[in-house]
Each structure stands twice: as structure tokens, then as C-alpha cells.
Design a protein around this nucleic acid. Structure first.
Lengths: 293, 293
DNA sequence: TAATTACATTGATATATTTCATGTAAACAT
DNA sequence: ATGTTTACATGAAATATATCAATGTAATTA
């Protein structure tokens, strides 16, 4: 019983992700009938149907969903295994899966871009996958192995992960040109404004909730660009990293609401798994990240 | 680059464990030339030689050793993966790797034998592997995944493992018929005898070292039978579980050196990994183990 | 009712793997 | 030395496996 033979699982995953056999042809580079055979063989080996398909639409069965999750996992493990053994050859190879949060390219001291330059200026066979997600999803990814390295503001540290501080980011409160506070006097700005105005926050930050009477945020965003859009609308106050907001402050579309109690700092860390025979590609990339510090 | 294609790794591992191609034929059930091809393909894919072979003997290269370790690991992972997906079918299947310490069959309350009866009286497709090793090796096995369940006297508990107490074992000091203490008076028996006589111990027990002036053990054994042999020789005192020693006490070949300070108890636990989607086979076996308690 | 879509099936073809027979080189026995 | 044995390598033929192209089928849609 070998489910990993003949790329049965790769076919299965491709079919799931493409939502059907016909579309998966192009991804897999084989004919539709070959895919049909592979799924048939897989189901034959498993003894149950993994998906319903046909003109009536594509859908995973209950067992199929579980099988798909596990298949993705073992495929990643096997990829990493291949890479580990190939790296014994001397050349570094394989997938390198890196995760970051959004809106960091302009963050001063964020080491990704120079690290990429460094890393890929040496000849290698590494395939990069760069994922943008929330710190929490990134943490999950590191733990499950779907990510090798993540760079983000991690607040709670996990035992099984290793953290290296790389830089920090300052956040301030901003409002848009159309907002009533845009033209107010400086001495009107106090933490009190949070109670009188709608505020938008990044779901994972919630850094506004500093004092007890912090208001329910009126809008939750998962992404800086979304926050900027809400702020620019003039209907929301919002917290942005200064390096990001500065472009609109310059053009007069936003105003910094300056007050000592309305500033926050996040510490950015490189995180990766402890206690695991790290692959060379991973180690080298971390080295590349740290090189400029 | 797929190292898992065509059972290349299975061939490699078999060859390593059989110490050569010719012997591995029988294990793998394919011809020697087929093995030769597989190893050639593996080395071609890897880009380096994994073993030296020929009339001059079989030997892994340095990289080959690493590759072998990792190959064993991924094969186990894939086996478990197969089993997990197959179990979605309803039937429980796959490898079930169980570890115990030696000399436990006669331990009253040790749940293995009734559990085996229970478990295998229901029809299933499980392949059992029963390993005898030290508690420390068993712990390692659980953590690395080479074992699913272990039953042993675990003293230190590991966070990533789950323990269920099942029974306990009493240990006493014994000497052989030829030993000078064999015929001594009962009131001559005290912890002091440890300082005046050679003592043998199981390497992982070391339960004799209770007081500060515990002596260097003269002999270390890794196995109860070995301890019994040393004790029967009359040259060593030694600690044995009562259920094991009783056979020789009955025949007059050993004497129990009874003293309140020369008794020890080990608690036996069923251990398995926490926080891991346990396979049905594993869960069911644990249930079978607990059934009689 | 015909056309379309999405997949299944089939037989031909291509590819991969194994075996059988044989070759080679090192170790061993004589 | 010489021949023999052992352990693996190699090549051609045989076998098994996977893929493709073509076609069939069933559920939608026009």
C-alpha cells in the first residue's frame, strides 16, 4: 500500500487546488485522462472516494478533506527530506518558505530585501515561496512546517521557536484629510479622542487597547492597505507605521495625531524552529538576514 | 527530484540493514540486479555515493550514514501517513510500534498480554512491532516517532508525552547460593552490605544509590537476565523484581536479602505522544491496555 | 433537442523496471 | 601464481506501468 507512488498525492492536491481535473492538466503538465487514472488509483488504494466530480461540480468528500490536509503535509515533509539529502551534495536546494507580515518593505532596517540579494547572488537551486500573513498564521506555519522562516512582530514567544530581534516599527495615530480632527489644534489631541471617534485596527495588533476604557474598534482590518483606505476615507482614525503613513502625510492626505500616549512600538523578530536539523538553505538565509545588522 | 520514487529508499535501507545487495534480495523479494539499479538511481539523484560495496565489503559513506538515518525517518513518517489515510476507511491498519522493558511478562498487572489478546481478537490489518529497550531509548523512540506506545517505569516525565499509570513493580536485593551472605543471619542484613559486596545494577535503574555512601557498582547490566546470571554466579548481589526472582528463590538458588531499606518500587506507565492526531490503531491499543485496569 | 462541459474508459504507445545472462574485480584457497 | 568464489555492475530482452489520443457518458445549459 503506497499512497506516495506515481505522484498520486500531487495529482490529488493539484486537482483540489484547481477545482477539477481539467484545470489541473496545465498545472501538472499531463493529460486529463492521466489525472483520472491517478485519482482512480488513489481511491482504489484508499478504499474510499475522495471527491465528487463531473459536470455537476467538483467537491471533496468528508474523508477527502482530511486526506487532502494530510497529503499537503506529507508532501511538504517529503520535499524537505529531498532537500536535506540533496544538500549533502554541497549545493543548497529545495523549497524555502518564508513568511512576513504586510507593509514591511518600507520599514527601515527590515532585512528581507538585502537578504534576498545576498542569498540569490550566490548560485543555488533554491525555490523561494514568500507568504504574507498575520503573525499568528506565520507562527502556525512555522510550527506545522509549512514555513521555514518568518519575520514579524511576534508578541508571545513559543517555546518550540527561536527568535532573533531584527528591528522595530513605530506606530502613530493618523486621520485623513476629510476627518474632523484633521484641522484641530495640537492640544486637542489626547487619548480621549479614541472614545469619540471611530477607530480601525489591524486584527492582530489591537495596540490601541492600552487603557481600560479603550473603545470597541469600529472596523477591523487584516492588512495595512485596508487600514490606510479607511483612514483616507476620513471616517476612521487608525494606527499606521510611520514609514508607511509618511507618503500621505507628505501629500497632505493624512495628519499625524501626535501625542505621547498615542505611540506604539512593535519589535520585529526572525523566527524559526528550534531543535530541528535545519536545512542549509534555511540556515544560510537566516545568516543572510542577519548579515546587515 | 523525487527520492521516494520506486522504493529507492526502501532498497537503500534494506541494503544497509542486510549489509549488502545480495542479502537484501530476499528481504526485498527482487533480484540483485534490480537492487543494483535502485541504488544506482538513488545515487544518481543524490549526486553522491551512499555506500562502498563489492567483494571488499559493504560500508556506508559519511553522507550515506546521514542519508540512511533520514531515510528511515521519512519511511516511518510515510508509513504512518498511509495508515492514517487508510484508517479513514474504517478498518484499522498500518504499523503499530510498541516498546517495553525486559522481564515484564511475569509482572502482575502488566497489561500487555491481555491487551494483545483483546486487540487482535478483533479483525484488523495491523502489523505489530514489539521492541524491548531501556526506558530512555523508549522515550527517545516515542519522541522521534519510531514508537507509538511504550510501557515502562518512566521516572522523569516529558512534556510532549502523555503518561498513564498502570502498575508497579517491587524490587528486592538477592544473592546466589554460592554467595557468602546466602547463609547469614537475618539481622546481619542491612544497607551496609552494599559497601562490603559487589553489586550489579541495571544501567537505567541505579536504584541502589539511595544514601550518600552508595558504592560504585561492580557490574552494569542492561537486562534482567544478565543481572540474574551475575547473581546466580554467587559473585554479585543484585536487585531484581520479586516476580522474576521468585523462580530461583523457590529452587533455593537465590536468597532474598530482606530489609526495609533494601526495597524499591517502580511505577509503570503507558506513554505516548500528546498533541498529535493519534492513529486509531494507537488509540485502540491504549484502550485495550486500559481495559483490564 | 442539441450543444457543452467534465470526467471515465479504452486500446495503442511510450516509459520504466525487472530479470536473465554475463562481465568484472577483489578476496581467498590451493 | 592460478583458479575459484563472492559481490556487485551491466546490457538486452521481457515485463509491468503510465500516458496519450480518441471516444463514450452523464449532467447541464442553450
Amino acid at each position: 500500500m503506497k499512497l506516495l507512488r506515481n505522484n498520486l498525492l500531487e495529482a490529488f492536491c493539484a486537482v483540489v487546488e484547481c477545482g477539477g481535473f481539467s484545470e489541473a492538466q496545465f498545472r501538472l503538465g499531463i493529460s486529463q485522462s492521466a489525472i483520472s487514472c491517478r485519482i482512480r488509483d488513489l481511491e482504489l488504494a484508499l478504499g474510499y472516494r475522495v471527491c465528487e466530480r463531473g459536470r455537476s461540480g467538483f467537491q471533496l468528500t468528508e474523508r477527502g478533506k482530511i486526506a487532502y490536509e494530510k497529503a499537503c503535509e506529507i508532501i511538504r515533509l517529503v520535499e524537505d527530506f529531498d532537500a536535506e539529502l540533496l544538500e549533502l551534495r554541497g549545493t543548497i536546494t529545495g523549497q524555502l518558505r518564508i513568511g512576513i507580515v504586510d507593509t514591511v518593505i518600507s520599514l527601515p532596517g527590515f532585512p528581507l530585501v538585502p537578504a534576498l540579494q545576498r542569498f540569490f547572488s550566490k548560485e543555488n537551486d533554491v525555490n523561494l515561496e514568500l507568504v504574507v500573513a498575520s503573525p499568528n498564521d506565520l507562527k502556525e506555519g512555522l510550527i506545522t512546517g509549512s514555513l521555514h522562516i518568518a519575520i514579524a512582530p511576534f508578541k508571545r514567544k513559543r517555546d518550540e521557536l527561536e527568535y532573533i530581534k531584527v528591528c522595530s516599527e513605530n506606530h502613530y495615530m493618523y486621520c485623513g484629510k476629510a476627518h474632523e480632527l484633521f484641522a484641530c489644534d495640537t492640544d486637542e489631541i489626547s487619548p480621549d479622542i479614541l472614545n469619540n471617534h471611530a477607530v480601525c485596527q489591524r486584527s492582530y495588533d489591537m495596540i490601541v487597547a492600552r487603557d481600560a476604557k479603550a473603545p470597541e474598534p469600529k472596523a477591523i482590518v487584516t492588512n495595512m492597505e485596508a487600514a490606510a483606505a479607511l483612514i483616507l476615507s476620513g471616517k476612521f482614525l487608525g494606527v499606521l507605521p510611520d514609514h508607511y503613513a509618511t507618503q500621505w502625510v507628505k501629500t497632505g492626505e493624512m495628519r499625524l495625531l501626535e501625542h505621547p500616549d498615542l505611540t506604539w512600538t512593535s519589535e520585529f523578530y526572525i523566527a524559526s524552529r528550534k531543535s530541528q536539523a535545519h536545512r542549509q538553505a534555511v540556515e544560510w538565509f537566516i545568516k543572510a538576514l542577519l548579515h546587515g545588522l
